[in-house]
Each structure stands twice: as structure tokens, then as C-alpha cells.
């Protein structure tokens, strides 16, 4: 039932942002705080997903390194999306695209060992 909570918070924030239309700065603050509050609402759900992933990992005995990289990429993607959407909402499209480019580069760097692992796997099969 958290989804109802989230929607209500979002609508309240939208109304307040509309009220404070003349002062754009308060709108930015409201967007940031709403994003943070919603994150803390669905963070508990995320712990159960992590437990599920660890169980899967134990079953399929994949190397722990890949799972760790997977989570790091997930975290970076989340933070990048959070930041770039906030900038886009505030009307700064160029800063948003810069943040997205930086996020993609960091994810690319993080995923390098996985790519190497796949290539080694293919070589070993052939």
C-alpha cells in the first residue's frame, strides 16, 4: 500500500511547486526533498530484493564479483537518473545530459571486467 502514500506525497509536492511558481528555487527544493522521501519509502522493499539476489547467487554459484558489480551499476544508474531528472525538471537540459553522459562512462568503466569475463568464457568454449 506504499504506492498510495507515494502518489499522495507526489501530488502534494506538485501542488506546492505550482503555488511557489514565482520563486523557482523553492520548487527545486521541493523536488529534491520529495525524491529523497520517496526513495526512503521504497528502500525497505529493496532489501528483500538483495536477499533474493544473494540466494540466487548461492544457487547458481556465480562469482561474487559479478553480483557486486551489478549492484554498483544499479546504484550508479539510480543516482544518475535521480540527478539528471531533477536538472531536467528545473529546466537545465544541458546539465542533465552531462550528468547522464558521466553516469554512462562510469558504468562502462565498472562493467569492463564483466566484458572480459565473457570473452574469456567464449574463448574457453571455442
Amino acid at each position: 500500500m506504499e504506492i498510495v502514500q507515494i502518489v499522495i506525497i507526489g501530488l502534494c509536492a506538485v501542488i506546492f511547486i505550482a503555488v511557489l511558481d514565482k520563486h523557482k528555487e523553492f520548487g527545486v527544493y521541493l523536488r529534491i526533498v520529495t525524491g529523497v522521501i520517496m526513495f526512503f519509502i521504497f528502500i525497505d522493499k529493496f532489501d528483500s530484493i538483495i536477499i533474493l539476489f544473494n540466494k540466487l547467487n548461492a544457487l547458481m554459484n556465480i562469482d561474487d564479483m559479478y553480483m557486486k558489480i551489478l549492484f554498483q551499476i544499479l546504484g550508479i544508474a539510480f543516482v544518475t537518473e535521480f540527478g539528471s531528472q531533477l536538472c531536467k525538471d528545473s529546466g537545465e537540459k544541458s546539465i542533465a545530459s552531462n550528468i547522464e553522459i558521466a553516469g554512462r562512462i562510469i558504468i562502462l568503466v565498472l562493467s569492463a571486467p564483466i566484458v572480459l569475463g565473457i570473452i574469456n568464457l567464449i574463448e574457453s568454449i571455442m
Binding site: I32, F39, I43, Q72, F78, V79
Partner: peptide, 26 residues
């Protein structure tokens, strides 16, 4: 007014980023 609200918001942002780092083992 902006500075006052900034102090409040900064705590929320730092909480968010420490939580994300701790959650995703960044």
C-alpha cells in the same frame, strides 16, 4: 529564506547518498 531551507535540504541529500552508498556497496 533560501539559506534556511538549504540547511534543511542538505541533511536530506546527505542521508540519501550515504544510504545509497551503503545499500549498493558503492
Amino acid at each position: 529564506g533560501l539559506v534556511v531551507v538549504l540547511f534543511w535540504v542538505i541533511h536530506y541529500i546527505s542521508d540519501l547518498f550515504t544510504e545509497v552508498q551503503q545499500l549498493f556497496q558503492l
